[in-house]
């Protein structure tokens, strides 16, 4: 009799659905922005948020890494990690720029291949990214080495490739149409496009739902009929293609490519995802959260610059923020764990 009672839980049924977790992150963003606003008036005698030009620069700065973060978020939700994105940026910047050089430039890498239409460097660059992602995904899914190791290998290899490609020489003088991929607010537009596409993909398609399922419990996902291996390859390919896109945008914006481009971008992208509420243990996170995480990241960097804090401090504080975000996530998980 009383055993029946144990079955009836929580008499006060909540009628409404739970609030989206992104709301908390948005509140953090508002809080941090307000802190800088107040500090601005105290130390600089001017408004932080009132300066539209500064906000524009801030968004421009972070949206390239934001493109990477959209891909990295999917990898982390699937229960993995991608350390290779920064190096893919460098490698793809070199390759695509070498195919995007303007006609008549006498020191071109491929003198016969100058003045090509913009789709050529764009497609070849994205294809290089896809290849790197395929190798990552294949290694992780079929040889079952940890994602950390597989993508660490790719990180070193792709960077090596970028340096070998021109023996360390920078590549410059792109066509106008290629340069326009990075001009003005183009990086922000590209980020927005990518974010919307993958927000929809993660929320409304099987691709997204399977990614969450695999990250939450790969074994259960497999038993439920999901081809986990094939799906993971897709996820890593998408992440690397987005990193490649970021590489193209970076090169186009600077109108030059160097082997060292994108150094440490992978960590900034992971930080944006984690700050945005993506759980490093997989199964939780969202593109909206990561986008907010990206803005938080930008506000902090731009805010410190605004307060004329030394760049060295900025680096150190960035490190602290990443660890703090992970600690917050771990704490949330422990609270859940206690309940089961």
């Amino acid at each position: 009799m009383a055993t029946q009672d144990t079955n009836i839980e929580r008499p006060a049924a909540r009628a409404h659905r739970k609030l989206p977790p992104e709301l908390n992150i948005l509140l953090v963003l508002v809080g941090i922005a307000l802190v800088f606003e107040i500090l601005g008036w105290i130390f600089q005698g001017q408004s932080f948020l009132g300066n539209v030009g500064r906000l524009k620069i801030m968004i421009l700065q972070v949206s390239v890494i934001g493109i990477i973060a959209v891909g990295v978020t999917q990898v982390i939700i699937s229960g993995g990690i991608d350390l290779s994105s920064g190096s893919v940026v460098g490698a793809v910047a070199m390759v695509s720029m070498s195919l995007a050089q303007a006609a008549g430039y006498e020191r071109a890498i491929y003198p016969a291949l100058t003045g090509l239409p913009v789709v050529v460097p764009l497609l070849v660059g994205l294809l290089c990214g896809a290849l790197a992602g395929f190798v990552n995904g294949w290694l992780i899914a079929y040889t079952r080495i940890p994602p950390f190791i597989a993508t660490l290998g790719m990180m070193v290899t792709a960077r090596g490739f970028a340096k070998w490609y021109t023996k360390g020489q920078p590549v410059s003088f792109p066509t106008d149409s290629f340069a326009s991929l990075g001009a003005g607010m183009a990086p922000v537009m590209i980020f927005l496009l990518v974010a919307v596409i993958f927000h929809v993909a993660m929320k409304y398609t099987r691709y997204g739902k399977f990614t969450y399922a695999i990250g939450a419990n790969a074994q259960a996902a497999r038993v439920s009929g999901i081809n986990v291996e094939r799906h993971l390859v897709k996820v890593y390919v998408i992440a690397a293609v987005l990193a490649a896109l970021a590489g193209i945008v970076v090169a186009a914006r600077g109108q030059t490519a160097q082997a060292g481009m994108g150094m440490m971008y992978e960590l900034d992208a992971i930080a944006m995802a984690v700050i945005g509420g993506t759980s490093l243990t997989g199964g939780r996170g969202s593109i909206i959260g990561t986008s907010i995480g990206m803005v938080i990241f930008g506000v902090i960097i731009s805010g410190f610059t605004f307060l004329r804090l030394d760049a060295y401090y900025q680096e150190m504080i960035k490190g602290v923020i990443i660890v703090a975000a992970v600690v917050a996530d771990t704490y949330r998980q422990q609270k859940r764990g206690k309940k089961t």
């Binding site: 969450y212 939450a216 259960a220 996902a221 038993v223 759980s279």
Partner: peptide, 8 residues
């Protein structure tokens, strides 16, 4: 282990 997605 092989059934629930506990976090979902």
């Amino acid at each position: 282990e092989t059934g629930c997605f506990l976090d979902l």
